[in-house]
Amino acid sequence: MAPELQTLAPGVHFLPGAVNSVVLEDRRGGALLVDTGLDESHARRLLRALEALALTPTGILNTHSHADHHGGNAFILKRFPDLKVFAPPLEEAIIRQPILEPLTLFGARPPRDLQTKFLLAPPSPARLAPEPGLARIGGVDLELIEVAGHASMMFAVRVGEVLYAADALFGPESLEKHPLTFCADSRLQKEAAARLGELEGVRVVLPGHGGPSQDLAGLVAANLAAYGRVTAAVREAVREGAAPVDELLARVCCALGVTMTNAGAVVLNRAVVSAHLTELLERGEVEMGVEGNRLLFHPVAGG
């Protein structure tokens, strides 16, 4: 076995890192790469690991468009320019035009501090992946499972008894390190995690961030509890008094013990609070209005 690759099942490996990359063998000397990591450094490790196993990449599947999951594409495509890159709907457009990620988070052309590799990966020519369900990509038979919520669209990948949950589930250390778990839609994030918990026959689950686990139910429960804590913290922040998103973000960070030290962290966590506010608005637990030229969120009267 290549020194850095770890095996989850015959022909199913992963390269651990800040983001996990999955390697799925096609049994003919090739392998589909699922998520390529943040940057060239991770991509180099991934290609060295493949070379040690005498494997050649047959394709790339990006589970979603966040820079830490497709930032390695560009380096791999320099070595293997004919590789096809697949991603879910909308996500493939962002991978082709990565400026859309920081632009969306900031709401306008992002300043230089928001154009780092953590928010702005090199572009790569992604195309639409097959629809959710059984599929064949890069010569590998797999199942794509829709798990939108963390991103606008995202796929988990199942091969036999192995489930790569992508960022629908996080390892315990990641949940502890990042209490404000990123999401584009907090309601869908919870629903996706719960659906994964209903899968039968999963022997091992690998989150996008964290080590493999044989306790799918326990991992799902930990993630749902973490997501619920964020919703509760946002609800309590609103109950402290009407405020705009940035003030609510400060209140939530105080409650959860989060310290932000750079612009990237602020715009990411601001998006998380906004997502949970939308969920609470839809539940009828908070209200939104414009007062004094400010967009404010406040408790429901009498609630």
Results as ranks from 00 to 15, higher is better:
198 E>S: 12
167 D>S: 04
194 A>R: 15
190 K>W: 07
215 D>H: 11
196 L>W: 01
159 V>F: 11
212 P>C: 08
218 G>C: 09
210 G>V: 12
215 D>Q: 10
156 A>D: 00
197 G>I: 05
206 L>R: 00
163 L>W: 03
155 F>E: 02
169 L>M: 10
159 V>H: 08
171 G>F: 04
158 R>A: 09
215 D>L: 09
154 M>R: 09
216 L>F: 09
175 L>R: 01
210 G>D: 12
219 L>I: 00
220 V>S: 03
163 L>Y: 03
187 R>N: 06
216 L>S: 05
199 L>C: 10
181 T>W: 07
190 K>L: 11
188 L>T: 02
178 H>S: 11
213 S>G: 12
214 Q>L: 14
163 L>R: 03
197 G>H: 04
186 S>M: 07
159 V>D: 02
191 E>S: 12
214 Q>T: 15
171 G>L: 07
219 L>F: 00
158 R>S: 11
176 E>M: 15
201 G>F: 14
188 L>V: 05
168 A>T: 07
171 G>T: 08
172 P>R: 14
207 P>S: 05
219 L>N: 00
164 Y>G: 00
219 L>H: 00
165 A>R: 04
192 A>V: 04
220 V>M: 08
161 E>W: 08
180 L>Q: 04
195 R>H: 06
158 R>N: 12
192 A>P: 01
153 M>I: 11
160 G>K: 10
216 L>R: 03
203 R>T: 15
187 R>M: 06
201 G>H: 14
177 K>C: 12
166 A>P: 01
216 L>Y: 04
200 E>W: 07
194 A>Q: 13
193 A>M: 08
214 Q>P: 09
187 R>P: 00
184 A>S: 12
162 V>I: 09
156 A>E: 01
212 P>A: 10
159 V>C: 12
169 L>P: 00
192 A>M: 06
155 F>W: 10
162 V>Y: 00
189 Q>G: 10
211 G>C: 12
213 S>P: 04
171 G>N: 09
219 L>M: 13
183 C>Y: 00
155 F>Q: 02
208 G>D: 08
218 G>R: 05
166 A>C: 08
155 F>P: 00
194 A>N: 10
182 F>M: 13
201 G>V: 13
158 R>Q: 13
168 A>W: 02
208 G>A: 14
184 A>G: 06
211 G>W: 13
204 V>H: 08
211 G>K: 14
157 V>R: 05
155 F>M: 06
175 L>C: 02
209 H>S: 06
218 G>S: 10
190 K>R: 15
153 M>W: 07
154 M>P: 00
206 L>Q: 00
220 V>A: 06
184 A>V: 11
199 L>R: 10
164 Y>A: 01
